[in-house]
Design a protein around this nucleic acid. Structure first.
Lengths: 194, 194
DNA sequence: AGTCATCGCAACTCAGAGTTGCGTTAGAGT
DNA sequence: ACTCTAACGCAACTCTGAGTTGCGATGACT
């Protein structure tokens, strides 16, 4: 729906350039300081062109986030829950370590941009749901106590990573990912995550 | 230091009113939509008065956050790590459940307001450091395996609470606090938090 | 090569950030 | 109770960025 328009005229190129420029500006200045003119200039496009395709700044940002987040998460299958959790955590760290990933996550969380709340909710709900599969497989393999809540396991895994990004604001690394996986595994195995 | 000026003239009253109005506006509209005129009107003060005391909007917001965050955290001492962790988690939930707490936390995290980054860092570092005491006491009581990292335990405790506030955006409740305490305790006892 | 939707450009309006000068008032000291 | 002064209210600015409009130029598909 979003990108699936018949590619006629210069539409698609302009659209892609403007959305990419929006993400880049978000990464550099954040939403509060983002100006449409800066986006247009970066995209090599005139300001009015932006307003012809998007009604206002909020819609533009929301669409850029939606577009940038469309790629789906590859779900690992290493054979053990420990391996899968580490892969998931490392993939999240890798995404949030990039300039665009951090900017997208921060914008989704930070500001009350109308339209972004729903995008954020769908995005995280989708990611969580996909990740749950590795926990379900572990349950089937008997790696975890019955009654363990897959969604809560995933939340336990990603929580310290987002905490570091948003709260303590230190750099993300694979050591953090591995520790998150280790802690989550220990808690889940002990039956604490119901 | 912040509010400790000799109370001469109408200064202190105006300062308190404007800072309170700033927090209230942050809670209602967020930083991106916050206008100085709205703050002034809410504080029953003229716009120029605000600009006489604070150089710009960013300084005003930073000062309001700094002032609002000055209250120090009461550290529980229930006798058991489980009890202390639950108290800490519930206190955090209570703070973040209020309108101002959520607004303050969101503003600190969300936008790149110059001056706020440092306030955020100090605030969270201070809170973490204070909370660590309960873990140190548990280590002395032999409740946890030697080598357990107090700071990491605290981070494990608060991570799912901030995750729910910022990422999944569901309502915070004591059940969340208790689960966070339960999971943290299980992971720490198993020796996974080094 | 022609057609038409799309884009560039200039010229607006409007709101909010931040500033200045001057008249007015609240409050501390005697 | 009465000054006297620092702090406040007010009006009138400038400036930047959001969002709009009309017209002429250009690029993509037939």
């Amino acid at each position: 729906m979003t990108t699936a328009q018949v590619p006629l005229g210069r539409g698609p190129k302009v659209r892609a350039a403007v959305l990419a420029a929006t993400i880049a500006e978000l990464a550099e200045t954040g939403y509060a300081e983002l100006t449409v003119e800066a986006v247009a200039k970066r995209a090599g496009v005139h300001k009015t062109t932006v307003y012809r395709r998007w009604t206002d700044r909020e819609t533009l940002v929301a669409d850029a986030l939606k577009d940038h987040v469309a790629a789906d998460l590859p779900v690992p299958d290493t054979g053990t829950l420990d391996g899968d959790l580490r892969e998931l955590a490392r993939a999240l760290v890798a995404w949030l370590s990039g300039p665009t990933g951090a900017a997208v996550a921060t914008t989704m969380v930070a500001d009350r941009v109308p339209g972004v709340a729903e995008i954020k909710h769908r995005f995280f709900a989708d990611r969580l749901a996909r990740g749950e599969i590795v926990v379900r497989r572990a349950l089937e393999r008997g790696e975890l106590p019955p009654g363990t809540d897959p969604a809560e396991v995933l939340k336990t895994l990603i929580a310290p990573i987002y905490l570091r990004l948003f709260v303590t604001a230190e750099t993300l690394d694979d050591e953090l990912a591995d520790r998150a996986a280790r802690i989550t595994l220990a808690a889940a195995r002990s039956g604490a995550i119901q």
